[in-house]
Design a protein around this nucleic acid. Structure first.
Lengths: 218, 218
DNA sequence: CGTACATTTGATTTGAATCAACGTTGGTGG
DNA sequence: CCACCAACGTTGATTCAAATCAAATGTACG
């Protein structure tokens, strides 16, 4: 579903129109694309890179609600304001549209509308799956689930079984509802038990997938 | 958004057609409407009652991903299978449609399609808000947030400030990622601190809303 | 009534957080 | 080139919030 980017559902002509209807904007790692509580006046389509959607509590606790990968949309919320801050985790490119232009474009292209529907439905399913993780899973189960999720995101992309962890330990912790120390400890445990193999700080290999799946429960 | 039931967006004629295109089905409290992993062959529109969406882990841990109120839809998932079990919390009535009929009907009624869009967007926002609660809030904050959420669901419905808690403590616990003992203790604490007042096991009144809001953080 | 179940309350345990060093890495400038 | 340093990550010791274990109390219903 995710891999169906905009270009997959529009014919060449419509695609050209689409791209032209909004400029491409670039962000460096750490840059903020939209702030929580900003007016939702634009819609974005991520073409490359990685974004995180996060929310801060008044005392600084942070929760990451999800990551956006190429092909995902940002700002299709239907609310007046954004509920989450969107920041670039890695250098990213987005197509930026005025909401009104975007809505008009959609009306003329039912295929894009279906794509948006599918995106929203997929995001909802992913968010609910994450609710189970945050509400009921142990630290070990959360890490195992997360590593398998990362694997799922690089079908053919990742060379020779090497899976990228494109975000920092702090991001992983805030996504999984844990502290960085716990993330680090649990990863070390998986390594010690020969379930995974670290091939760098930002990449790993799965040694025993069935055990990892078992540890992720579900 | 929730309060805009189907009837709010269709004219009288279209509404009659809509109701006729699927039978009304009844469920008693505790009945299962759809099982997790069932084929998603039907779409439902809840007309009265209350449903819970839940998922069980192999060892019996349960997480409730959300509750469905009148006007909400069930089964618009776009996936082959349902990801969550839907059960009636109270006696409930639903309009049941074949997915194909439903899709055809939508195509002829853009207003309904917008309603579905809004519903999906609202559910996504609610799920992400719940991610913050489950990932980062303390037991006290979770209970305070939940009680305020309940208040939000009975704008004009609830007589003289009395807010209904239409589900069991076990359901509350499994929705908030806590155990029933913790839910009970935290509610007792709020009562002891004169922040709320219990008016029955299934209902309460807010005595000090600003303090409750403060306790819910955000 | 009395039985079964739901809820509350109390005592103890425990998994993850917190506090505290200690390694590692990558970028910068001498 | 490599020494420095700041940011990131790991590991260890201790604490704490919520879970678990264990009754007791309240409530609905045949």
């Amino acid at each position: 579903m995710r891999e169906l980017a905009v270009c997959g559902v529009l014919d060449a002509d419509a695609l050209r129109q689409f791209k032209e209807s909004g400029p491409t904007v670039h962000y460096n790692a750490g840059d903020t694309v939209v702030f929580e509580s900003d007016q939702a006046t634009n819609v974005y389509s991520l073409t490359s890179g990685l974004l995180r959607l996060s929310k801060l509590l008044p005392d600084g606790r942070r929760q990451i609600a999800g990551f956006l990968f190429p092909g995902d949309f940002l700002g299709i919320t239907m609310e007046e304001e954004h509920a989450f801050t969107a920041e670039a985790v890695a250098p990213s490119e987005l197509c930026k549209f005025q909401r009104r232009q975007f809505d008009e474009f959609i009306e003329r292209h039912p295929a894009l509308e279906r794509r948006l529907h599918a995106f929203a439905a997929h995001e909802l399913a992913a968010a609910r799956q994450q609710l189970v993780l945050l509400g009921r899973k142990t630290a070990t189960e959360r890490i195992a689930s997360f590593l398998l999720m990362l694997e799922g995101h690089c079908h053919s992309v990742c060379a020779n079984q090497e899976i990228a962890v494109p975000m920092s330990r702090a991001d992983v912790a805030d996504y999984l509802g844990l502290r960085i120390e716990t993330v680090s400890r649990e990863i070390s445990r998986l390594k010690a038990h020969r379930v995974i193999q670290l091939t760098g700080r930002q990449s790993f290999r799965i040694v025993d997938r069935s055990r990892l799946k078992q540890m992720a429960e579900g």
